[in-house]
Design a protein around this nucleic acid. Structure first.
Lengths: 191, 191
DNA sequence: CTATATCGACCTACCAGAAGGTAGATCGCG
DNA sequence: CGCGATCTACCTTCTGGTAGGTCGATATAG
């Protein structure tokens, strides 16, 4: 793993914990056992670094989604795979919040370029959810009384809301609980 | 309005916009047209100030809730009143996010005392929602297939998730849309 | 097969400004 | 007078960022 990758990785962790203004080059340098100036060699400014972090995450998720859409024909199974990914991340605290989610909350106070990347992630996720919801309705696995777009926004809302809940209550189980209740409802709802 | 109150008020606005680490005494002083040192006279440290901000908000909401529980016997009407409060705040951008919500997202990077106050707010809100949901079930206005506690957590999740959505998409309408869909479901769900 | 030029990664040593915070003077009011 | 509110002036530490040097690997020329 290259130093640049390590920087992106560790910066991501720090941002998830404390937000954009909650970490510094000094923190990051200490964590990696290098000097501040070396970070500037790889990422001239903090904005460059944070944009790189968000974009890397975006690319990873887009890839994950593309693989799901190729390999898993069942809409509900796709959703479950995605949800299970987050369940694991939150349960073992390896990534206890969505990076873009943390940044989205402080969006008004962020440099413009970071904001663009963050909105990009939300759009990526939103678009996929629309597709998978429409597919689920066609497959009869998801409730019919709502538009797929509505279900998608609903689902995204629940995901991020559940992350807030897990963090606010200091209880990763809250995420599982809420998300499971949501999914159970979706399935039993076939009216 | 006393200077201390103005400080709490303005600090709240700044925190809602950019989080705990996204505002400074210098910012705040500039906004109020006074000097930094004068802020320290009222709130010796930043932690003191932020705790005061959260606690004031907590008190205000508790008061609002108590009034609702006294004056409004109908559970669904209580929920609507609360939701409408947030709809207004978000639509006119006077308070585009819950203060405690912003802080909750950066909780791991916050001073302990602030964290305690933030968790306090979430508990306050959660407890009320449990009560009002149980009442709603008794009144037959809310779906019966879920425990009141589950519905309460569900509702809280949707509220905070919808705030994240509104901010991430830069569209206050997202909040209304998602929350209305949630409420509509709750009501039509009487199985 | 050496000698040397080049280059990327990292370093030390700085800088200006902003951060949170303190000391102590001044001002106005009961 | 006493006191609260505000001020000026200052301190220390941290911030993101820069300048310029060292080191080792690799490429190239003699």
């Amino acid at each position: 793993m290259s130093t640049a990758d390590k920087l992106i990785d560790e910066a991501g962790r720090l941002i998830v914990n404390a937000g954009y203004n909650g970490f510094s080059y000094a923190h990051l340098a200490e964590r990696l056992g290098i000097r501040k100036a070396s970070i500037h060699h790889h990422f001239p400014s903090k904005v460059d670094l944070v944009v790189a972090v968000v974009e890397q995450q975006r690319a990873a998720i887009r890839e994950q989604i593309a693989a799901l859409e190729n390999d898993e024909p069942d809409a509900m199974a796709q959703l479950l795979a995605y949800v299970n990914y987050w369940k694991r991340c939150i349960e073992d605290q390896s990534e206890p919040f969505c990076l873009a989610g943390v940044l989205a909350v402080e969006l008004p106070g962020l440099p413009e370029e970071v904001g663009v990347a963050v909105r990009g992630h939300f759009n990526d996720l939103g678009e996929w959810l629309k597709r998978v919801m429409a597919l689920g309705v066609r497959q009869g696995a998801i409730q019919l009384e709502l538009e797929p777009d509505t279900s998608a926004q609903f689902f995204q809302t629940t995901l991020y809301g559940a992350m807030v809940m897990a963090r606010a209550y200091g209880d990763p189980g809250k995420f599982n609980f809420v998300v499971d209740a949501f999914l159970a409802r979706m399935r039993t709802d076939r009216s």
